[in-house]
Amino acid sequence: MTSPFCTIVPPHLLEKLAADGRESAQRTLQADSALRTRRRVTTLRAAQSAPASALTGTPRRAVHDAEHTETLPGREVRAEGDAPVGDATVNRAHAGLGATFDLFMKVYGRDSMDGSGMPLIATVHYGVDYANAFWDGSQMVFGDGDGDLFLDFTLPVDVIGHELAHGFTQHTANLEYYGQSGALNESVSDVFGALVKQYALGQSAAEADWLIGAGLLGPGVDRGVALRSMKEPGTAYDDDVLGKDPQPGHMDDYVRTSRDNGGVHINSGIPNRAFHLLATELGGNAWERAGLIWYDVMTGGALAPDTGFAEFAAATVAAAKARYGDAAELQAVTKAWAAVGLPVD
């Protein structure tokens, strides 16, 4: 089973910055293109799963330092059980891997991303001013950013959760990374990335900011708070350098494009908003009832790799009914999808 090359910063944003002459964006696009080419002509490293005897319900983390090269995984600098090191980036990556593991293990009873205790591997200081973070099918990779438009990609814990959640999708529904199924792949990562952050901070749905990548944008961005807003898609940034956040929050504004694998980072705003509406309607902690419904759908075997928005919405309604019956949860999930233009009969 393989996973697409999934980045947190969408290609359309990097392409705009590169066209404006931003060297860090140009280098990032070149690095990403080389990685995608390698994935087409070589077999992806298989994600390592622990043998059944090794499953303990505790993470097995390893953080590596690429030392500003593009060679993976790099030199191991902190293993599971090691004390913090003098590099804050390494320590943040280690902590973020642990926070993601904790959500899946303690809330959903899932032992790592594959459910079988797979090691959580990360590489930091990738490339030169690399303005992205990605999941490559078996490990996390973080750039340092250029310090102007993007800061260190280990700073927002939801970015770490987002990318690791691509591994969760890889080992469950394995949603194809194109069009609506690809937008769902991205949305599921935003959902669980947000839940990692909320769980780590002990925030209720009402207290959370529902931003993906808050704290990532650098001093060169005047009008921007994050990469995406799940609460109000399309409002994360509106900046002279970055441009306008293109995400829609309703099917009336669905973007049809061949770029970005059919708009996977753009149209993900629609299911993102549906989840936010559900979580805030139910109240309390989003990782509980709302998160359980999404988790049940992803692990229940009902999704095809090419599942679209309507099929996913119907699956969440069925999952809510199976877990909660005709209670408030069922009404709330139906209401949430109707509010984004996807009514479920």
Rank of each mutant, 00 (worst) to 15 (best):
V333Q: 01
L303I: 10
G291V: 01
D306T: 13
D306E: 15
A304C: 10
R289E: 14
A310L: 12
A336V: 00
A322G: 10
L292H: 15
L292V: 00
G301P: 00
L330F: 02
A304I: 10
Y295M: 15
A313P: 09
A332R: 01
D326G: 08
E311T: 08
L303E: 12
G301R: 02
A332L: 05
L330K: 08
A286G: 06
L330D: 13
A314G: 14
G300K: 12
W294L: 12
R323V: 08
P305A: 13
T307Y: 04
A313M: 09
W287N: 06
V333T: 14
R323N: 01
G301S: 13
K335A: 12
V333W: 00
P305Q: 10
A319P: 00
A332S: 15
N285W: 09
A320H: 06
W287G: 03
L330G: 03
V317R: 00
L342F: 07
A327T: 13
A328H: 12
R289D: 14
D326M: 04
D296V: 01
Y295C: 09
L303T: 08
G284T: 03
Y295E: 14
G308A: 13
G308P: 06
T307A: 15
A328E: 14
R289Q: 14
A304Q: 14
A319G: 08
E311H: 05
D296K: 07
G301Y: 11
A328W: 06
P305Y: 04
T334M: 07
G301E: 10
G291S: 02
A322R: 14
Y324N: 09
R323E: 10
A290D: 04
M298G: 09
G341K: 08
Y295V: 00
A319Q: 06
E329C: 03
A339T: 07
G341R: 12
W287D: 10
K321S: 12
L292P: 04
G284Q: 08
I293G: 02
E329A: 12
L303V: 11
L342Q: 09
P305H: 11
